[in-house]
Simulated assay, not measured.
Amino acid sequence: MGFVLALEASSRTYAAAAGDGERPRAQRASRRDDPAFTGLGDLVAQTLAESGAAFRDIAAIAVDIGPGGLS
């Protein structure tokens, strides 16, 4: 399938994971009410940087907007 970016935004804790296999290369999470949280875009950028990928490498995006968690 290629490189996948997965986003969880259905609760107070937002999460992003990125990878190209069965396990993500990188994953991050942050509570949206945390004063240090700067937005979902920054969370994605940090996750991609940690995974060693760029936006152009993304082949598919999975998004969970709720209700409930991604499972």
Rank of each mutant, 00 (worst) to 15 (best):
A15E: 04
R32F: 07
T38D: 13
V44A: 14
F37C: 07
E22C: 04
Y14W: 15
R31H: 11
A49R: 14
A6R: 09
R12G: 15
A18E: 01
A54L: 10
A29M: 09
L43E: 10
E22Y: 01
Q46F: 00
S11D: 13
S10F: 06
G39Y: 02
A18T: 03
F37P: 02
V44G: 09
S51W: 01
A54H: 12
P35D: 10
A16Y: 08
T13K: 14
A9C: 15
Y14F: 15
A9V: 13
E22Q: 11
T47A: 10
D20F: 06
F37T: 05
A15R: 04
L48Q: 04
L48S: 05
R32N: 08
T13D: 01
G19S: 07
Q27W: 12
L40F: 07
A18M: 03
G39L: 01
G52E: 06
G19L: 02
S51D: 07
R56F: 01
E22N: 10
A29S: 15
L48M: 13
A17N: 08
D42A: 13
G52D: 08
S11G: 13
Q46I: 00
F37V: 07
G52Y: 11
E22R: 13
G19N: 06
G41L: 05
L40M: 15
E8H: 02
A29R: 15
A54C: 12
A36R: 14
P24T: 07
R12P: 00
A16W: 08
D42F: 01
E50I: 02
Q27N: 07
A16E: 09
S10G: 14
D20H: 11
A9D: 00
A6W: 03
D34H: 03
F55M: 13
E8Q: 14
R12A: 12
R28K: 14
A18R: 02
A9G: 14
D34C: 03
A45Q: 12
S51F: 01
A15Q: 11
D33V: 03
P35V: 06
S51Q: 08
Y14Q: 06
L40Q: 10
S51K: 02
A16H: 11
A54T: 15
E8N: 08
L7F: 03
A36I: 00
P35W: 10
G52C: 12
T47H: 06
R32D: 04
S30H: 15
A53T: 07
A17E: 08
A29F: 11
L48I: 08
A16L: 09
S10Q: 06
D42H: 10
P24E: 07
Q46A: 15
P24D: 09
L48V: 07
Q46M: 05
R56P: 02
R31V: 05
T13I: 14
A45E: 14
R32G: 00
R28E: 12
R31P: 01
D34M: 01
L48K: 08
A6H: 04
A9H: 01
S11L: 10
S30P: 00
E8S: 09
A29N: 02
R28W: 03
A26N: 09
D20G: 14
G21Y: 12
Y14K: 12
F55R: 15
E50R: 10
Q27A: 13
D33P: 05
A49L: 13
G39K: 08
T38R: 15
A45T: 07
R31T: 06
Q46N: 08
A45D: 15
A53E: 10
A49I: 04
E22H: 05
G39A: 04
R25P: 01
P35M: 10
